[in-house]
Design a protein around this nucleic acid. Sequence first.
DNA 1: GCGACAG
DNA 2: ATCTTGTCGC
Length: 225
Amino acid sequence: MAWPPHLPPPDPQLVRTLTEQQEKLRQQVVLQKPDFDLKLLAGCDSSFIGENILSVFVVLTYPELELVEKVWHYGPVEMPYIPGFLAFREAPNLVQAYGKLERTPDLIMVDGHGIAHPRRLGIASQLGVLLNKPTMGVAKKVLTGKFEEPASVKGSITPLTHRQEHIGNVIRTKDKVKPVFVSPGHLMDLETTTALALQTSLKHKLPEPTRLADHYAEVFKAEVG
DNA sequence: GCGACAG
DNA sequence: ATCTTGTCGC
């Protein structure tokens, strides 16, 4: 994979190392119908402040979707952003934030892709393996694959495919608003992932877990900075 | 060879 | 992700 024109050219040696690590983690990813009885649903997101990263985790009840907990962790960013290797930059701090939760969620919705990734290991999948927890990815933009624009009415779904594989779905979670790209991360399947993304999308484009994590990332950011 | 590229 | 102005609609 090459890289966007506006981004600093990644170090070839670093990319080689990270690619090897991704392969090992990818082999641990499990795609299956989740076996949990969904009661607590978490959402996570990160924001940046200079050389530091602020990661947030929120936990909501299911199916009520009431916020019951929110935590954050602030630390230095060790890795540069390289398309396809986002997890190496954000996952470490997300794991630290996750450790601060008092409650144990049954599933985590991550801001980014799951297996809808060039090597099938987006940040949602990688985080799932690191935490040994069911995860699903909800991204605002496509990274890999082809798709048709879903109809403009909420609920419209279109498949995201890559190399003959159905790696995710493009979902219109709100009328006339750009769709989101969802894919299973770990210990999840595409069907459940798609259903939950829609079920938890209320009056906004993003499902509640991810939307609230995104929201509190801004709130905490103001408190920290 | 020419694009495209999560956050 | 972040920077950054005005503008449209509920």
